[in-house]
Design a protein around this nucleic acid. Structure first.
Lengths: 191, 191, 191, 191
DNA sequence: TATGAATGAGTGTTCATTCAT
DNA sequence: GATGAATGAACACTCATTCAT
């Protein structure tokens, strides 16, 4: 099976764009068909077994792109607190570069929030952060704290920034990143 | 004359309960009718001009209750950092006492979030926090920071805790409150 | 039973105004209640047994007013062709003075057109004209023609003028009356 | 590719028939579904984006048919007054042949009349007549008159005849045509 | 790989009306 | 004379999906 069949990615991108500009609720097959200029919604259900699968494919695609941006930045850091900073900064940079993708991701995650499996992508992101906080404590770089809760706080703060940016495009993202880095660095550093 | 006509509050409460357990999407008039044991959905549209109004009434009710819980606690604090702590703790306590109401509020806010009513309740909550952070800086109790961004970070962290609690009822909310208080107090204190 | 109970006429006038500006379809009990500032639609169904009765009352009221305007003018004419001219002119004058009433009458008549009884008000107006054309022929003032068909042609032409005026308030009604008088006078005069 | 997809025209014809016999108001999707023997009303909204579009399609279809009947007859006439006669006669003939279509057209036009689309089909018909009266005056075949007003009077008279015929099927349409031709010919001829 | 056609369940909302004071 | 509450039927329309080529 080909992950990127041309048609598939065309549909996925159309859905992402519609979600970003009009929200998940508005991203019906009909609206996607229209936005992508497809002949019929049948083309969508031909390529995706269900709406959920399409939603999942969109999220996977976004995470793929975000990961390309963020992973090397995080890997390049040599300390846990440095990796936390890299995580926040590169995530905000991704938002600056692909605001539609970032907005769509938040929309999708809030839409599939409750029902999905524990191993959903959302948790993937938080698991990475949870490990980061756990490692920081083991390395003595961070004070004692609840890694999972801090992970969710970081993600929540970033996601909220994404939402605010979607409504206020004039937002200074560079400064926003600085503030968030400062906020969490102060919160975790020992003493 | 009673503002809350009995029927109205019955419907509002039914909607809150359905939203809390099944999500906003599932909270259709038909589902509310069923849950509240009403004779027809017409009863709902008789008391509320539109779904949006009902949603607004539900949110208002929740904010009313949350405010009853939180306001005296916040007012009792004598410092800005104390008020921040009281805000976080009393909000989490409200979540512990009325998890359905807390969950419903988050659901409703994310559902009506986009429509750009600047004066919406969501912003009201953030505005209160924004003032709190601004006052803290003026009083010299907090270091220099972006009040609005910190406000949204606090709300985002609490809202995320609400969501997590909804999925994991076993969560230790007392400890969760301690951690969040610590997180933000460290983040704001001078030096 | 009092024909004009104050409340009744208030409701009737509100309905006429709503019909004139928004059409019969839009003139629902709810819309009338709103326009008249009533507390509930129940007040309407209290005073009128059905929507049809209210519609009939409105039409009766309009015809009453139109008749006040037109009857003396028609009666004052001494010939059949003079009465035809008086009919047309005074009808157009009524339109100029009470455009909302004239528009509402046309709306109501087209709404209740098909179902109603033969003795409906619509026919009343045409019957009067039919007699006028019949008398004109008997008196030798008019050539041989189908009185009923000419009656309906006159009413149709005037009603259409009403509709056009409703859409084009700038219409010169005086000239319009002149033209219609000329049209039908030429059509009926002998030779 | 066929513009008229079979299903589409089946639905259009069903709607025309329902409108003719029961009025526009009664022509709901449910009633059409029933009359056409369709499996679901969804079939209607599948083929037509909205009720308005379906209404428009029905009107277009009727005008198409009426035009087939009337156009050659009008074109064959060599004088303006001859064309006026041909217009009236062929229109009444269309009424005699397809009473349901004629009735439906009048119903639809009165239903969509208000919404102020200047370029609506109604005006198209009147514009043709207006030109006819203007040409007649230029050619010296008709006396000086308000072409637009005469056009609306002709259409109003014919439409009223359609309505009357719908209620009184026994009406002698041949004689009706004779009378209307005479009426308007006398009204326009010079001297 | 593609597509037009079809579908049943569902949405919120509106309608005039009746019930019970 | 007046009124708030209640009601069931109907409305156009949207949903993701399946059928049949």
């Amino acid at each position: 099976m080909q992950v990127t069949s041309g048609r598939r990615s065309q549909i996925v991108e159309a859905m992402i764009e519609v979600i970003a500009s009009e929200g998940v609720r508005a991203a019906s097959f009909a609206r996607i068909r229209e936005h992508a200029g497809l002949s019929s919604t049948r083309l969508i259900s031909y390529h995706f077994d269900s709406r959920a699968e399409l939603l999942g494919a969109a999220l996977t695609r976004i995470i793929e792109l975000a990961s390309e941006r963020m992973s090397p930045r995080i890997a390049a850091a040599t300390t846990s607190r440095g990796r936390l900073e890299a995580y926040i900064r590169s995530n905000i940079e991704f938002l600056a570069e692909r605001p539609d993708y970032a907005v769509a991701a938040v929309e999708i995650l809030s839409a599939i929030g409750t029902p999905a499996d524990e191993d959903a992508a959302a948790d993937t992101a938080e698991q990475l952060l949870t490990r980061l906080f756990a490692d920081g404590q083991l390395a003595g770089e961070m004070r004692t704290l609840d890694a999972a809760l801090y992970a969710s706080a970081v993600r929540a703060a970033i996601d909220r920034a994404v939402t605010r940016f979607a409504r206020t495009p004039g937002l200074d993202l560079h400064r926003c990143a600085d503030e968030l880095v400062e906020l969490f660095d102060r919160a975790v550093r020992p003493e």
